[in-house]
């Protein structure tokens, strides 16, 4: 079997004396959508933050394309090819929509490919294209989530980490965002999707991990997890 694109081994992360992540290991194969599901406080965001270098693990390794990430500064992790859509979107409300997109290209060396990527993003999110000069803070919640995803695309990562993209969105918009995630994946970007909405996440994903108080308690193919009675009871409402 080929090397996984992203491979986490025995990762531990603490905030002071709170052990948020306690020795998790997971693999993300190139081209797949892998989902990490779990209740609020399980350690999902912390795992993503550790991959991006926003928090330092106390132990363990994060290997991406053969490169150890856990010692890199966060902006170097982006350069290495990891795009991260943070929890709560994290758009810059005081910048225009276009500036939000532009800033995401900050460390890109392949400047000549940026216009083509812009076109791709506009094709995927026509509503953003109509609002380029608008302050990002004036966008609706759904549009802000689209912008957060679009911005991550502009960093041109090989893998996109998505932290609860469906949070706070209406059911229709949730459908729409999951459709976009599938499209981005089909176009070649590997995805690590963190969700509380296990139902939707397991539908779109190839593979899944269930996280509980900082530990992985179940792992498997997404459809197997979706039919697993333990998952159904705890996360899918029986």
């Amino acid at each position: 079997m080929a090397e996984p694109l992203l491979s986490i081994r025995d990762l531990h992360v603490s905030y002071g004396n709170i052990k948020a992540v306690r020795g998790i290991s997971l693999d993300v194969e190139e081209g797949q959508i892998v989902t990490l599901i779990g209740a609020n406080g399980a350690g999902k965001s912390t795992t993503l933050r550790a991959i991006s270098g926003l928090v330092r693990p106390s132990a363990g390794s994060v290997v991406f394309r053969g490169m150890e990430l856990s010692k890199l500064a966060p902006h170097r992790v982006v350069e290495a090819g990891i795009a991260h859509v943070p929890e709560g979107r994290g758009i810059f409300a005081n910048l225009t929509v276009y500036e939000n997109l532009k800033l995401a290209t900050y460390s890109r060396k392949d400047r000549d490919r940026i216009p083509a990527d812009e076109e791709r993003v506009f094709a995927l999110f026509p509503r953003l294209k109509e609002r380029l000069s608008q302050m990002a803070g004036t966008l609706s919640g759904g549009e802000q989530q689209m912008l957060a995803v679009a911005r991550a695309l502009m960093t041109r990562g090989r893998i996109m980490l998505l932290d609860e993209p469906s949070m706070g969105l209406s059911p229709i918009l949730v459908q729409e965002i999951f459709k976009v995630i599938a499209e981005i994946n089909e176009a070649g970007t590997t995805i690590l999707l963190v969700e509380q909405n296990a139902n939707m996440a397991l539908k779109v994903a190839h593979h899944g991990y269930v996280l509980q108080t900082g530990e992985i308690v179940l792992a498997g193919a997404a459809e197997d997890l979706a039919s697993d009675p333990r998952v159904r009871e705890a996360y899918l409402g029986g």
Binding site: S52, G53, L54, A73, P74, H75, V78, E79, A83, H84, P86, G90, F92, A93, N94, L95, E99, L103, A104, T105, Y106, S107, R108, R151, T155
Partner: peptide
Amino acid sequence: RAISFDKTVVPLMGV
């Protein structure tokens, strides 16, 4: 300007 709004997210833009 982005940092002045939210410093925590800016590194994720490769900045």
